[in-house]
Write a protein that binds this DNA or RNA. Structure first.
Length: 625
DNA sequence: CTAGGGTTAG
């Protein structure tokens, strides 16, 4: 074949990005081969064809790759490696491994494994979580007398780490003479994936340099982890974002996405808005993922209007985007809108997944849509081929229970194809509380305490049920057993963001510097709403206090303090947003309705379960919560 | 050739 044609095909391959283009080049190659110039195949060009096929941005046509591979009578190391890569990229790491072992058998054909083969096969082991083969091949590295290669070692770190052998991974890293950023970052990512945030942070501090990926990994770690100490972790994410800027590392959309999820879990709307402005000011392009983050942040910070605006602005939406919107509407109590959103999603040809249905069922639950809940639940498997998980059954139990269909809820628990978990029993127990069914409550309690004997919230819920029924002896017994098992009650707290700083109040809190003013304000508030007809709902207190004591305990609940502070510090007529760690109590719910009317304020409360929008004396939950 | 981001019930 003439040199000119070889060069022409090489340059054609360079510009090949679609499978169709590739077949065209291939056809051209075959034509020139069979033409008069040469009948011999060109090994170099064929290898290049295969390599191009494997590196196309689209998914790999394995049939095609295999036929190319088999056209070589004696594939060399490069060609073997390319085929191993083909399987790896085509999500078939098992075949990569098989091919690697076949390659070893071709030793007599002078085909030898090189550092590319090794790094690829370790990646395959990492994806398969195949520690056994991984370690076995690790010994090959020594046997073959390889000088330690950066890529091989990095792949080894990933293999050990992904298989859960974080200490082995660390040993490989520590043994490296000059680990590069990727070697560090790989381990950082795996530490985070295993929830080892402390180890990650130590490594992060130890690194000689940190690049964008290192920072992003750490920020994401703090923003996404932390069921425990959620608040601290989210604040740590924001702190790191600040440090990153001090270190002159320019953030990108990945950074923004993580920082936003920290804002979302803090409920920090002001901070979220600042980040949004930062994104716009710095020309960071909003792609689908970042857009979904923004949407989710607005929804979780109580600003459903901006969430909807964001949703409208996004040109491309996938199942995540739609699910986030549906869940947002659900949490704000807009059940019908959530269902409408779902219909639109279907019309636009987006396939729902199991999370989408959690949003829908949650919407039905928050809005008391029993029939529609059943329709959704049944359509899951019948129409969309998604089999309901225990979470979906949990939602259905909640929907039925809240609506007072306690027997139906109990029957569903009995017939569902899962062992009921604590969450299911708690949903039933909560329903028993609303609808005052002592017998069923007894059954749910026994099951719940067997599964979760150490969760404070369960005792609080039970205690509320007993005091509602005025069974004070039971309440006392419960408190005693809590004390015996050393179960601490998580105190209720409410926070409010003023001038981008978050203040947190607990019941009877006097720690705020403006405490005196806050309590004066609270007194005025209570006076004014009482004039408007508010009467304290003392039945929801746990203790067998006298009436005045009960009222006093209620009047300084954390949400009331936070609202008093909000009234003091924000402009008249502007909305007040409160974030509570537990569910809002009935008396607070009632009084906030009055406050919204008397002070002409929109008050948005995010409690443990959902949002309450108070306006003009009523709440968006229509007292169904 | 290896590294980083978005949804998950009550």
């Amino acid at each position: 074949m003439r040199k000119g044609i070889e060069q022409r095909i090489t340059s054609l391959l360079k510009d090949t990005i679609t499978p169709k283009q590739l077949t065209q080049v291939h056809a051209f190659y075959i034509k020139t081969c069979s033409s008069s110039h040469s009948h011999k195949h060109n090994r170099f060009l064929q290898a290049k064809l295969l390599a191009t096929l494997v590196s196309l941005p689209t998914s790999i046509d394995l049939h095609y790759a295999r036929s190319l591979f088999h056209s070589f009578p004696l594939p060399d190391t490069f060609i073997w490696n390319t085929m191993i890569r083909a399987y790896l990229y085509a999500h078939n790491p098992q075949q990569s491994l098989t091919l690697y072992f076949q390659m070893l058998l071709h030793h007599h054909h002078h085909v030898s494994v090189d550092s590319f083969s090794l790094s690829l096969v370790f990646q395959a082991c990492a994806r398969l979580l195949d520690w056994e083969n991984g370690t076995k091949i690790h010994t090959h590295v020594f046997k073959l007398g390889f000088s330690p290669d950066l890529f091989v070692q990095t792949a080894l770190i990933e293999m050990y780490a992904k298989c859960g052998h974080l200490d082995c991974a660390r040993k490989v890293l520590d043994s490296m003479e000059e680990p590069d950023l990727v070697s560090y970052n790989v381990l950082l990512v795996e530490y985070i994936r295993f929830g080892e945030i402390k180890m990650a942070h130590q490594l992060f501090n130890k690194m000689p340099h940190r690049d964008l990926v290192s920072w992003n990994t750490m920020i994401h770690g703090y923003a996404s982890l932390g069921d425990v100490e959620q608040r601290q972790q989210s604040n740590e994410a924001l702190k790191l974002f600040h440090e990153m800027q001090v270190a002159n590392v320019v953030p990108d959309r990945v950074t923004m996405s993580s920082v936003l999820s920290a804002c979302a879990s803090l409920g920090a709307l002001g901070m979220g808005k600042m980040i949004h402005e930062y994104i716009e000011r710095n020309g960071i392009g909003v792609d689908m993922k970042l857009g979904t983050s923004l949407l989710d942040t607005y929804a979780k910070c109580g600003d459903i209007d901006n969430a909807l605006r964001m949703f409208e602005q996004l040109n491309h939406k996938d199942v995540f985007t739609w699910s986030v919107m549906i869940m947002g509407l659900a949490n704000h109590g807009f059940g019908e809108q959530a269902l409408l959103c779902f219909s639109k999603m279907i019309t636009e040809g987006i396939k729902p997944n199991d999370v989408t249905f959690l949003g829908l069922l949650s919407a039905c639950s928050h809005s008391g849509l029993v029939d529609k809940g059943w329709v959704c639940f049944k359509s899951m498997s019948r129409v969309y081929g998604i089999s309901p998980k225990i979470q979906h059954y949990g939602c259905m139990v909640d929907i039925l229970g809240r609506a007072g269909l306690l027997e139906e809820a109990r029957e569903l628990i009995r017939t569902m194809p899962f062992e009921p978990d604590a969450i299911v029993w708690r949903a039933l127990l909560g329903a028993c509380k609303i609808h005052k069914n002592a017998d069923l409550a007894q059954e749910a309690t026994l099951n719940l305490l067997e599964l979760e004997p150490h969760v404070d919230g369960n005792y609080v819920l039970l205690s509320n049920i007993y005091s509602q029924a005025k069974k004070w002896d039971r309440v006392v017994m419960l408190r005693r057993s809590m004390k015996c098992s050393n179960i601490q009650k998580v105190p209720g707290s409410s926070s409010i963001e003023v001038d981008n700083a978050v203040y947190e109040f607990v019941s009877g809190d006097k720690s705020h510097p403006k405490s005196l003013e806050i309590y004066e304000m609270l007194e005025e508030v209570l006076d004014r709403i009482q004039c408007a007809g508010y009467k304290p709902l003392t039945t929801s207190t746990v203790q067998d206090f006298d009436e005045q004591e009960k009222q006093n305990a209620l009047s300084t609940h954390s949400e009331k303090l936070a609202i008093a502070y909000g009234l003091l510090t924000t402009a008249p007529g502007s909305p007040i947003r409160i974030f509570k760690n537990l569910r809002v109590c009935e008396d607070c719910h009632l009084s906030i309705k009055f406050i919204s009317k008397v002070y002409k304020r929109k008050i948005i409360v995010r409690d443990r379960n959902r949002f309450h929008h108070f306006d003009g004396g009523s709440c968006s939950c229509r007292d169904y919560w």
